[in-house]
Amino acid sequence: MARLAGRKFLLLIPVLLIVSIATFLLLNLLPGDPAINILGLGATPAAVHQLRQQLHLDDPIYLRYTHWLWQTLHGQLGESYLNKEPVSTAVRQHFPVTLELMVISQVIAIIVSVPLGIWSAYRPNSWADRAATGFSFAMLAAPPYMLGVLMVFVFAVHWHVFPATGYVGLTQNPFENIRDLFLPSLTLALGSLAVYVRLLRAEMIATLQEDYITMARAKGMPTGFILLRHALRPSTFSLVTVAGLNVGTLIGGAFIIEYIFAIPGIGLLTVNSIYSRDYLVVQACVLIVAVGFVLVNFFMDLMYPLLDPRTRHARSSA
């Protein structure tokens, strides 16, 4: 298993390299002078010249990339043009907030989707299954900006159950923190939830046709036991893959939701930096998010052997 992880880790390196190149090129290969892109059209020639020097823009592109990569690997992402703060500080402050938002949303999504998916598969075409399917279809058609706005309207403006916007740090006041994050997390969770329910239902229906389920019934095991202890785990293999891929959608959703609920995560930082044309911050955010996404999928891959013992021993028995 360690060897498998090692091999996958080696494959990770070129992917991360190419991701970094792409992020770098985004800013540097686009039409126009990057310095003017960064400073805006109204910049003075002197300022442009200074920035070109600072970013080594007169060097050949591969040199610039290696230089940038070297700095990035040392945590030096440049300075924000807005407040002259190091970009790394801003990223470090905002990143955990997004992470918390995403983790809570996934916890909600899994807690709700697993029982719903199991029940839908156990009694397909029952009213509960139809309701779950209808709900999933609706959620898949309701993007986070639509849901977010509606959620704010219903829960915050109309019922005053949750605050509409704002954020208190987890370390400052955990209770308020959760209260502030609940509505955004729920909004973010709904989309994933819909995907998970549909997927788990389909997988579970297939699993329930397996001989070993009939065998468990022939042993006289109770239905609930069979569903949870025999059918659930084999039905989650593709769920893990999809959950990994879903992180991409989730990040996009988090950007929007942070914007709607004014949560100071990496998404809000990115969007605000876009508005203020603070391109080095944007570049850093894109890089950090893309790398994070690649890493999440890498760890999801590693989770397979935990779920499926067959992949654990495949190497030793072959």
Binding site: E210, D211, Y212, T214, M215, A216, R217, A218, K219, G220, M221, P222, H230, R233, P234, L307, D308, P309, R310
Partner: peptide, 22 residues
């Protein structure tokens, strides 16, 4: 369910698919 497995048992055709792989 109290009869199955306790008083009447069954052996299935395909041992490759009758045991839960996980």
């Amino acid at each position: 369910r109290e009869v199955r497995g306790a008083e009447i048992s069954m052996i299935f055709q395909d041992p490759m698919t009758s045991l839960n792989p996980v």
